[in-house]
Amino acid sequence: MRLSERIIEKMLVICAAIALLGIAVIAVFITKEGWPIISKIGIKAFFLGKDWTPTKGVYGIFPMIIGSIYVTIGALAIGVPIGISCAIYLAEIASPKVSAIIKPGIELLAGIPSVIYGLYGMTVIVPIIRDLFGNQGFSVLAGSIVLGIMILPTIINISKDSIEAVPKEYKEGSLALGSSHWQAIIKVILPSARSGIISSIILGMARAVGETMAVIMITGNSTMIPESILSPVRTLTGNIGIEMGYASGEHQKALFATGIVLFIFIMCLNLLAKLIPKKAGA
């Protein structure tokens, strides 16, 4: 091989490694900034502390952990049934014409920026909740609804792909035994697509946990542990997003520390999605 070709090949390797390098540098920098404060106030006090009062130097992120969990569960409760139904409909039932209309719609839904979702949540969904329940509207419920919509494209696309990947022989086998199409879907096709569907849910979950701007705009961001789905709530991402603008010193480090928790959360979810066996029925 000529020298120039070899040099170029080396450069290609370096480019390929940049993503890997990126993730490493991100991990290092977030940890470098955030870890000292965790070790200073103690892991237990940081994770389980119920009080977040930066002015007094008290940093407990338990309410935000609970907040993220609540809002994510709410988002899944809305996004999973709608998303999986939509995936089944598109993969199994819809005529090509209907698919051709709905598919670009889902791509658009995925392409709409978070701030637009936030704006819509703030000006339409929050007031509706306020009118219905007489609370202030900014709430776990509002966050769940908007995040539930935002994770739809993730759930629909991945589930749909895995349903379409089920060998058509399974479906034919079921129909030939005199099952209805619905029975074939529920008893043979969905169980075979199980791993892909579970991945879609986990990745949807990661998307919900990681969303920031839309959540800040609609959840009220109170640092109290929410009492009900109508209470305001602050998530881990919200905690960082709101206070980064003005935090300094130790306070700012505490936000990086929140980032560490978020980072670990997300990495675990992504790893989990990767570990699900890919083979149908195996």
Binding site: E169, Y170, E172, G173, A176, V188, P191, S192, A280, G281
Partner: peptide, 8 residues
């Protein structure tokens, strides 16, 4: 069928 197609 031609190709055995047991369910998984």
């Amino acid at each position: 069928f031609q190709k055995p197609n047991p369910f998984p």
